[in-house]
């Protein structure tokens, strides 16, 4: 590393010399490329990213199903390096068929203390997932979250029931897919 630094210094000095004198010397250009990076993934305990949310049956006749179950086992990790003045955001959508009257919501919580840099901010309220992408984390610049669970943004999933559509509700289980994308914001 030290030798690399020496090399850099030497190159910068060398360029300086080139600029100052245009005779009797010979030079070449050096391009230092810092790559743009946008890598993101979902992490769950034991590498498992499939989750289950179950409505609870009432114990008292006359009451409806309880949809208050939540799941907070998954984490959003990312690494981002942007160009000057640029930022990124993470968006989410859902594909597949939800049970009649049921909505799936997700919210990014407070970011972990791990990682470095500008890791953006979570959208304040839970978003109701739909087929079109919606922002969940915005204003990400150059930063990284750390890798694995307990790093990055915790994701809390919840359900909501449209009580006026209760008659469309059917017993059973349905699996849907939630997709996250890190993409340019500007």
């Amino acid at each position: 590393m030290k030798s690399l630094l020496t090399t850099f210094t030497a190159i910068i000095l060398f360029i300086g010399v080139v600029a100052a004198q245009d005779t009797n010397t010979h030079g070449h250009n050096v391009t230092i490329s810092v790559p743009q990076v946008a890598i993101m993934d979902i992490e769950g305990p034991g590498g498992e990213t499939s989750i289950t949310l179950a409505a609870t049956a009432p114990t008292e006749a006359g009451n409806g199903l309880d949809f208050s179950a939540t799941n907070s086992s998954l984490w959003l990790n990312f690494t981002s390096v942007v160009s000057g003045g640029k930022s990124r955001k993470i968006q989410a959508n859902v594909s597949g068929t939800l049970p009649g009257g049921v909505s799936l919501l997700v919210q990014a919580g407070a970011i972990s203390s791990t990682g470095k840099g500008n890791r953006g901010k979570a959208v304040a309220n839970a978003i109701t997932l739909g087929t079109t992408d919606q922002d969940i984390v915005t204003d990400i610049k150059s930063g990284y979250t750390g890798n694995g669970v307990n790093n990055g943004y915790p994701l809390t999933y919840s359900l909501a029931m449209d009580e006026n559509a209760y008659e469309n509700l059917l017993h059973g289980s349905q699996t849907v897919t939630v997709t996250y994308t890190i993409t340019a914001e500007n």
Partner: peptide
């Protein structure tokens, strides 16, 4: 970069 995961909903 995109990534997906599954959510199972039980009624």
């Amino acid at each position: 970069s995109s990534q997906s995961h599954q959510v199972r909903i039980v009624i």
